[in-house]
Simulated scan of single mutants.
Amino acid sequence: MAKGRYHHGDLRAALLDAAEELVRERGADGWSLREASARVGVSPSAAYHHFASRDALVRALSERILSRLGVRLAAACDRAAESLVPVGETADPLRRLIALGRGYLHWAVEDPAVARLVFGAGATGPDSRVSPHPHDVLTAELDRLAELGALPAASRPGAEFVVWAPIHGLAVLLIDGLIRVDDARAFDLQAERVIRATLNGLCQESAPSGDWPAVHTTHTDRRRSHLGQEGEQVGPGAGDLFRQAE
């Protein structure tokens, strides 16, 4: 956004836009709140009315990016559900989840600097608000599969973390250039293979003698707190779904 190109009352949004531009140009850490302020033509003191620090601006930007991602993934699932099924064939129960996986991969590869921002631990906080949250979109799709009988009820608890791990890992490998695919079709097929292989494993797994270990994120702990339930907090080094702590 060019200097001074914001409307009265929209400085907060203009600063978020500027920060997002800077992330794409320099990465998550290569810029300051002062630079974001200068980019929209205001003094740092004006920016402080909206963001107390650069960290606060990063958190707000992460929340906005994650909300956009949630919308994108939900829309991808809905489009897959609306796609026509050839006459004589049965709709694939995994089509929505495959679309979600592909959507996540495309998002990461299309905008790697922004993706890395929200992958970083601490990009969001316990008080962050993200709606729709990507975690909740994935949870809803797995609940749907369980209701359809395509995912055993015994395998449903914690399945979102099992599914997210390989998709996120593939996304990181792709944006870091550690693996490559030949074309868009191969890209989508690789995403589909990961999803199908993971669901196949979940459908065939044998439950342990006790419960599966509980996995938490800041987002799930916050939701539990909001529901008035108590939950064990994540220990140091524990993974965070989409690294979105909100």
Rank of each mutant, 00 (worst) to 15 (best):
P112T: 05
H106F: 09
A47W: 08
V85P: 11
L73I: 03
P86L: 13
P86Y: 14
G70T: 10
E63V: 04
G103N: 12
R64K: 12
D92E: 05
L97Q: 01
S32M: 09
P86V: 04
A47G: 13
C77N: 03
E82P: 08
R102D: 01
P112Q: 06
G41I: 07
D55E: 13
A38H: 13
S37E: 08
R39N: 09
A38Q: 13
V71F: 11
R34I: 05
G70Q: 06
E89G: 01
P44W: 00
Y104E: 08
L57V: 10
Y48T: 15
S83Q: 15
E89N: 00
L84W: 02
A38S: 08
S83F: 00
R72P: 01
V87F: 11
R59M: 07
T90G: 00
A75P: 09
R34M: 06
Y48M: 13
R54F: 08
A74G: 12
S53W: 09
L61T: 13
A47F: 05
S83N: 11
G70Y: 04
W31S: 04
S67H: 10
G88E: 04
A74H: 03
L105H: 09
S67E: 14
R95E: 11
A56Y: 00
C77L: 07
L69V: 13
L73F: 09
R39F: 07
I65E: 12
A36C: 06
E82N: 02
A108P: 05
G101K: 09
Y104S: 03
L33F: 06
A91F: 03
V58T: 12
Y104K: 12
E35A: 13
L66F: 09
V85W: 11
T90M: 07
A75K: 12
E110I: 00
S62Q: 10
A47Y: 14
A99Q: 08
G70I: 04
H50R: 13
V109P: 07
A36G: 13
R54K: 15
L94K: 06
L100C: 02
H49E: 10
L73A: 08
L105F: 05
A46W: 04
P112Y: 04
L84N: 04
I98M: 12
P86M: 13
G103F: 07
R59Y: 01
R95S: 11
